[in-house]
Protein backbone atom coordinates (compact mmCIF):
# COMPACT_ATOMS: atom_id res chain seq x y z
CA UNK A 1 0.00 0.00 0.00
CA UNK A 2 2.73 2.36 1.02
CA UNK A 3 4.75 2.01 -2.14
CA UNK A 4 1.68 2.19 -4.27
CA UNK A 5 1.14 5.65 -2.95
CA UNK A 6 4.77 6.56 -3.50
CA UNK A 7 4.72 5.32 -7.05
CA UNK A 8 1.52 7.18 -7.61
CA UNK A 9 3.03 10.36 -6.23
CA UNK A 10 6.07 9.96 -8.45
CA UNK A 11 3.96 9.37 -11.52
CA UNK A 12 1.89 12.41 -10.72
CA UNK A 13 5.08 14.43 -10.42
CA UNK A 14 6.24 13.18 -13.84
CA UNK A 15 2.97 14.08 -15.42
CA UNK A 16 2.75 17.45 -13.71
CA UNK A 17 6.20 18.42 -14.91
CA UNK A 18 5.38 17.37 -18.42
CA UNK A 19 2.03 19.06 -18.62
CA UNK A 20 3.49 22.17 -17.01
CA UNK A 21 6.12 22.35 -19.72
CA UNK A 22 3.85 21.64 -22.61
CA UNK A 23 1.21 24.09 -21.44
CA UNK A 24 3.82 26.78 -21.35
CA UNK A 25 4.76 26.14 -24.95
CA UNK A 26 1.18 26.18 -26.11
CA UNK A 27 0.31 29.39 -24.37
CA UNK A 28 3.31 31.10 -25.96
CA UNK A 29 2.40 29.98 -29.44
CA UNK A 30 -1.33 30.50 -29.22
CA UNK A 31 -3.71 28.63 -31.46
CA UNK A 32 -4.80 31.43 -33.81
CA UNK A 33 -1.69 32.69 -35.60
CA UNK A 34 0.66 29.78 -35.19
CA UNK A 35 4.10 30.62 -36.56
CA UNK A 36 5.33 28.63 -39.52
CA UNK A 37 8.53 26.69 -39.20
CA UNK A 38 11.56 27.33 -41.32
CA UNK A 39 14.72 25.26 -41.26
CA UNK A 40 17.97 27.16 -41.65
CA UNK A 41 21.03 25.04 -42.25
CA UNK A 42 24.17 26.93 -41.46
CA UNK A 43 27.74 26.58 -40.33
CA UNK A 44 28.87 26.17 -36.77
CA UNK A 45 30.89 29.38 -37.00
CA UNK A 46 27.84 31.61 -37.37
CA UNK A 47 26.23 29.94 -34.39
CA UNK A 48 29.35 29.70 -32.24
CA UNK A 49 30.09 33.40 -32.78
CA UNK A 50 26.66 34.20 -31.38
CA UNK A 51 25.64 36.24 -34.45
CA UNK A 52 22.58 34.14 -35.18
CA UNK A 53 21.44 34.35 -31.58
CA UNK A 54 21.06 38.07 -32.20
CA UNK A 55 19.68 37.99 -35.75
CA UNK A 56 17.21 35.14 -35.61
CA UNK A 57 14.96 36.46 -32.81
CA UNK A 58 14.58 39.76 -34.69
CA UNK A 59 13.59 37.93 -37.85
CA UNK A 60 11.23 35.60 -35.99
CA UNK A 61 9.57 38.48 -34.25
CA UNK A 62 9.09 40.52 -37.39
CA UNK A 63 7.61 37.83 -39.62
CA UNK A 64 6.11 35.45 -37.07
CA UNK A 65 8.28 32.65 -38.36
CA UNK A 66 9.85 30.01 -36.16
CA UNK A 67 13.41 29.44 -37.38
CA UNK A 68 14.98 26.09 -36.64
CA UNK A 69 18.68 26.72 -36.88
CA UNK A 70 20.65 23.57 -37.58
CA UNK A 71 24.32 24.37 -37.11
CA UNK A 72 26.51 21.87 -38.93
CA UNK A 73 29.56 22.00 -41.17
CA UNK A 74 29.10 23.80 -44.49
CA UNK A 75 29.41 20.45 -46.28
CA UNK A 76 26.50 19.03 -44.35
CA UNK A 77 24.51 22.25 -44.60
CA UNK A 78 24.87 22.18 -48.40
CA UNK A 79 24.00 18.50 -48.44
CA UNK A 80 20.82 19.30 -46.53
CA UNK A 81 19.98 21.84 -49.21
CA UNK A 82 20.76 19.32 -51.90
CA UNK A 83 18.25 16.91 -50.33
CA UNK A 84 15.60 19.51 -49.71
CA UNK A 85 15.89 19.01 -45.94
CA UNK A 86 16.29 22.72 -45.26
CA UNK A 87 14.52 25.84 -46.47
CA UNK A 88 17.38 28.33 -46.39
CA UNK A 89 21.17 28.03 -46.20
CA UNK A 90 23.79 30.39 -44.82
CA UNK A 91 27.21 29.04 -45.77
CA UNK A 92 30.72 30.05 -46.73
CA UNK A 93 32.01 27.81 -49.49
CA UNK A 94 31.44 29.81 -52.71
CA UNK A 95 32.69 27.18 -55.15
CA UNK A 96 30.55 24.43 -53.69
CA UNK A 97 27.58 26.78 -53.45
CA UNK A 98 27.89 27.67 -57.11
CA UNK A 99 27.52 24.01 -57.99
CA UNK A 100 24.18 23.93 -56.16
CA UNK A 101 23.09 27.04 -58.02
CA UNK A 102 24.04 25.42 -61.30
CA UNK A 103 22.12 22.26 -60.44
CA UNK A 104 19.16 24.43 -59.43
CA UNK A 105 19.05 22.93 -55.96
CA UNK A 106 19.19 26.44 -54.54
CA UNK A 107 17.96 29.76 -55.87
CA UNK A 108 18.17 33.41 -54.95
CA UNK A 109 21.76 33.14 -53.65
CA UNK A 110 23.06 36.44 -52.30
CA UNK A 111 26.32 37.60 -50.77
CA UNK A 112 25.93 38.68 -47.15
CA UNK A 113 29.19 39.31 -45.37
CA UNK A 114 32.70 38.12 -44.90
CA UNK A 115 35.08 37.55 -42.14
CA UNK A 116 38.62 36.50 -42.63
CA UNK A 117 40.56 33.36 -42.08
CA UNK A 118 43.80 33.45 -40.19
CA UNK A 119 46.54 30.97 -39.51
CA UNK A 120 47.03 30.45 -35.82
CA UNK A 121 49.96 28.58 -34.34
CA UNK A 122 52.15 28.21 -31.27
CA UNK A 123 54.02 31.32 -30.15
CA UNK A 124 57.41 29.68 -30.69
CA UNK A 125 56.44 29.21 -34.36
CA UNK A 126 58.56 26.14 -35.23
CA UNK A 127 58.01 26.53 -38.99
CA UNK A 128 58.80 30.25 -38.84
CA UNK A 129 55.80 31.41 -40.85
CA UNK A 130 55.05 34.63 -38.99
CA UNK A 131 54.16 37.45 -41.38
CA UNK A 132 54.41 35.36 -44.54
CA UNK A 133 51.72 35.25 -47.20
CA UNK A 134 49.48 32.19 -47.15
CA UNK A 135 51.10 30.28 -49.99
CA UNK A 136 54.58 30.67 -48.52
CA UNK A 137 53.35 29.76 -45.05
CA UNK A 138 51.71 26.54 -46.29
CA UNK A 139 54.87 25.67 -48.25
CA UNK A 140 56.98 26.21 -45.14
CA UNK A 141 54.71 24.09 -42.93
CA UNK A 142 54.76 21.32 -45.52
CA UNK A 143 58.54 21.35 -45.79
CA UNK A 144 59.30 21.46 -42.08
CA UNK A 145 56.63 18.90 -41.29
CA UNK A 146 55.33 20.96 -38.38
CA UNK A 147 52.00 19.79 -36.96
CA UNK A 148 48.99 21.13 -38.85
CA UNK A 149 45.48 20.53 -37.60
CA UNK A 150 42.70 20.34 -40.16
CA UNK A 151 38.92 20.28 -39.65
CA UNK A 152 38.70 17.35 -42.03
CA UNK A 153 34.91 17.61 -41.94
CA UNK A 154 34.10 19.00 -45.38
CA UNK A 155 33.11 22.30 -43.81
CA UNK A 156 33.57 25.69 -45.44
CA UNK A 157 36.80 26.19 -43.53
CA UNK A 158 38.01 22.76 -44.59
CA UNK A 159 37.16 23.50 -48.21
CA UNK A 160 39.02 26.79 -47.95
CA UNK A 161 42.04 25.04 -46.50
CA UNK A 162 42.02 22.51 -49.32
CA UNK A 163 41.86 25.15 -51.99
CA UNK A 164 44.93 26.78 -50.38
CA UNK A 165 46.92 23.52 -50.43
CA UNK A 166 45.88 23.00 -54.02
CA UNK A 167 46.96 26.45 -55.09
CA UNK A 168 50.35 25.74 -53.56
CA UNK A 169 50.39 22.36 -55.39
CA UNK A 170 50.87 20.47 -52.17
CA UNK A 171 49.12 17.36 -50.91
CA UNK A 172 49.41 16.92 -47.17
CA UNK A 173 46.87 14.09 -46.83
CA UNK A 174 48.32 11.04 -45.19
CA UNK A 175 51.35 12.92 -43.84
CA UNK A 176 52.16 12.11 -40.25
CA UNK A 177 52.11 15.76 -39.16
CA UNK A 178 48.73 16.42 -40.80
CA UNK A 179 45.96 15.84 -38.24
CA UNK A 180 42.29 15.73 -39.23
CA UNK A 181 39.82 16.16 -36.38
CA UNK A 182 36.52 15.77 -38.20
CA UNK A 183 35.03 18.19 -35.68
CA UNK A 184 33.81 21.76 -35.46
CA UNK A 185 36.08 24.80 -35.48
CA UNK A 186 36.04 25.21 -31.69
CA UNK A 187 37.11 21.66 -30.95
CA UNK A 188 39.68 21.76 -33.72
CA UNK A 189 41.19 24.96 -32.32
CA UNK A 190 41.39 23.46 -28.89
CA UNK A 191 43.05 20.36 -30.25
CA UNK A 192 45.61 22.45 -32.11
CA UNK A 193 46.29 24.29 -28.87
CA UNK A 194 46.91 21.01 -27.04
CA UNK A 195 49.15 19.63 -29.79
CA UNK A 196 50.79 22.99 -30.52
CA UNK A 197 49.91 22.72 -34.20
CA UNK A 198 49.12 25.26 -36.89
CA UNK A 199 45.51 25.69 -37.81
CA UNK A 200 43.44 27.62 -40.32
CA UNK A 201 40.49 29.23 -38.57
CA UNK A 202 38.00 32.01 -38.98
CA UNK A 203 38.80 35.01 -36.86
CA UNK A 204 35.50 35.01 -35.00
CA UNK A 205 35.90 31.54 -33.60
CA UNK A 206 39.52 32.18 -32.69
CA UNK A 207 38.64 35.35 -30.80
CA UNK A 208 36.07 33.54 -28.73
CA UNK A 209 38.63 30.85 -27.84
CA UNK A 210 41.74 33.01 -27.48
CA UNK A 211 41.26 33.25 -23.73
CA UNK A 212 41.62 29.48 -23.35
CA UNK A 213 44.84 29.18 -25.37
CA UNK A 214 47.28 31.91 -24.48
CA UNK A 215 50.33 30.13 -25.92
CA UNK A 216 48.81 30.36 -29.41
CA UNK A 217 48.76 33.46 -31.57
CA UNK A 218 47.80 34.78 -34.98
CA UNK A 219 50.75 34.22 -37.34
CA UNK A 220 49.31 34.90 -40.79
CA UNK A 221 46.49 37.33 -41.59
CA UNK A 222 45.34 39.97 -44.03
CA UNK A 223 45.94 38.01 -47.25
CA UNK A 224 43.25 38.48 -49.91
CA UNK A 225 43.20 34.72 -50.31
CA UNK A 226 41.90 34.43 -46.78
CA UNK A 227 38.54 36.08 -47.22
CA UNK A 228 35.71 33.95 -45.88
CA UNK A 229 32.63 34.94 -47.82
CA UNK A 230 29.14 34.06 -46.61
CA UNK A 231 26.17 33.67 -48.90
CA UNK A 232 22.54 33.18 -48.04
CA UNK A 233 20.25 31.25 -50.37
CA UNK A 234 16.92 29.49 -50.44
CA UNK A 235 16.28 25.91 -51.44
CA UNK A 236 14.44 25.48 -54.72
CA UNK A 237 10.82 24.71 -53.89
CA UNK A 238 10.16 23.63 -57.48
CA UNK A 239 12.60 20.79 -57.03
CA UNK A 240 11.68 19.60 -53.53
CA UNK A 241 8.52 19.08 -51.59
CA UNK A 242 7.61 20.79 -48.35
CA UNK A 243 9.92 23.76 -48.80
CA UNK A 244 8.77 26.91 -47.06
CA UNK A 245 9.46 29.21 -49.98
CA UNK A 246 7.90 32.29 -48.53
CA UNK A 247 9.83 32.19 -45.26
CA UNK A 248 13.11 31.35 -46.98
CA UNK A 249 12.65 34.24 -49.37
CA UNK A 250 11.95 36.61 -46.50
CA UNK A 251 15.07 35.35 -44.74
CA UNK A 252 17.30 36.01 -47.76
CA UNK A 253 15.96 39.55 -48.03
CA UNK A 254 16.33 40.05 -44.29
CA UNK A 255 19.98 38.99 -44.36
CA UNK A 256 20.98 41.37 -47.13
CA UNK A 257 19.07 44.33 -45.77
CA UNK A 258 17.94 44.66 -42.19
CA UNK A 259 20.57 42.33 -40.77
CA UNK A 260 23.41 44.36 -42.22
CA UNK A 261 23.20 47.06 -39.54
CA UNK A 262 23.57 44.45 -36.85
CA UNK A 263 26.35 42.54 -38.60
CA UNK A 264 28.37 45.74 -38.83
CA UNK A 265 28.31 46.24 -35.08
CA UNK A 266 28.44 42.66 -33.93
CA UNK A 267 31.45 41.82 -31.75
CA UNK A 268 32.59 45.42 -31.19
CA UNK A 269 31.50 45.37 -27.61
CA UNK A 270 33.09 42.10 -26.60
CA UNK A 271 36.24 41.99 -28.72
CA UNK A 272 36.75 45.61 -29.68
CA UNK A 273 36.55 44.66 -33.34
CA UNK A 274 33.72 43.44 -35.56
CA UNK A 275 33.62 39.71 -36.26
CA UNK A 276 31.97 40.05 -39.66
CA UNK A 277 32.06 42.71 -42.36
CA UNK A 278 29.21 43.87 -44.58
CA UNK A 279 29.69 42.57 -48.11
CA UNK A 280 26.50 42.72 -50.10
CA UNK A 281 26.35 42.80 -53.89
Amino acid sequence: MKINRKIFALMTLFILIMTACSNENESVEGPTNEPQDMILATTTSTQDSGLLDVLIPIFEEKYNINVKTIAVGTGQALAMGERGEADALLTHAPTAEEKLVASEDVINRKRVMYNDFIIVGPERDPAEIQGMDVAAAFQQIFETGAIFVSRGDDSGTHKMEWSLWEKASLDPSGEEWYLETGQGMGSTLQLSGEREGYVLTDRATYLSHAGNMEHMEILVEGDDELLNIYHVMQVNDRKYERINREAANLFVEFMVEEAQEIIKEFGMEEYGQPLFFQYTE
Partner: peptide
Amino acid sequence: RGDTRILTTSMVMEVSKG
Protein backbone atom coordinates in the same frame (compact mmCIF):
# COMPACT_ATOMS: atom_id res chain seq x y z
CA ARG B 1 17.89 27.38 -29.22
CA GLY B 2 14.73 27.65 -27.15
CA ASP B 3 13.35 24.54 -28.75
CA THR B 4 15.34 21.33 -28.93
CA ARG B 5 18.34 22.42 -26.94
CA ILE B 6 18.84 20.12 -23.97
CA LEU B 7 21.55 20.01 -21.34
CA THR B 8 23.84 17.55 -23.10
CA THR B 9 23.65 19.16 -26.53
CA SER B 10 24.13 22.64 -25.16
CA MET B 11 27.15 21.36 -23.22
CA VAL B 12 28.70 20.11 -26.46
CA MET B 13 27.96 23.45 -28.06
CA GLU B 14 29.35 25.52 -25.22
CA VAL B 15 32.53 23.46 -25.26
CA SER B 16 32.93 24.05 -28.97
CA LYS B 17 32.38 27.75 -28.35
CA GLY B 18 35.11 27.65 -25.74
